[in-house]
């Protein structure tokens, strides 16, 4: 049974962040460098101390920057609305009530389709906010639809 946090009379159902699959090109750079170092070691060549430290620094910076970028956006599903928070110190929070949502659209480029993540755009009879780089967007939209249906029917109960 899921724990449900109460915030006022709204229950937070789920919190999402952009998928790490977005950063695959960056992670692949680290993997290429790591494999190259392994190859050098395997062939019995010398790995420069400085070069090793540079690779290590590069990897740490990439991981740190991607994680910081990732925590800059978060999406919350509550029992009655979707909240999109953007920012680090100052936060821009967009709230969209389920009653106001008329359509949901999934946007996926070729790279996103390959890795099964994409943007989910909410419509309020016109283009609304975009939840970027959601992992498995189709499954998420199905889940969101179910929540919206329950909310609109007033059936959503505390688990």
């Amino acid at each position: 049974m899921k724990k449900v946090k109460k915030k006022g009379n709204r229950k937070r159902i789920r919190k999402l962040r952009p998928s790490r699959k977005l950063y695959m090109p960056y992670y692949s750079m680290i993997v290429i460098l790591a494999l190259f170092l392994i190859y050098i070691k395997y062939t019995g060549r010398i790995i420069n101390d400085t070069a090793f430290n540079v690779v290590l620094f590069f990897a740490i910076v990439i991981i740190a920057v991607t994680e910081i970028h990732r925590i800059g956006e978060s999406y919350h599903l509550t029992s009655s609305s979707v909240i999109l928070d953007t920012g680090y110190f100052g936060i821009l929070s967009k709230r969209m009530e389920f009653e106001a949502i008329s359509d949901i659209q999934i946007l996926q480029g070729p790279w996103q389709r390959l890795l099964n993540f994409g943007d989910v755009q909410l419509f309020k009879f016109g283009p609304g906010p975009i939840m970027k780089n959601i992992n498995r967007p189709n499954a998420f939209v199905n889940e969101l639809e179910q929540i919206i249906i329950k909310a609109k029917a007033g059936e959503h109960e505390e688990e």
Binding site: L33, R45, I46, I47, N48, T50
Partner: peptide
């Protein structure tokens, strides 16, 4: 660009001039 620089630096210090590589 940074990635290519790091890659070529590792390549240079391990394949082209390995002796410089080990000694910092």
């Amino acid at each position: 660009g940074v990635f290519l620089f790091v890659f070529l630096f590792v390549f240079y210090t391990s394949f082209v001039n390995p002796n410089q590589g080990q000694i910092t």
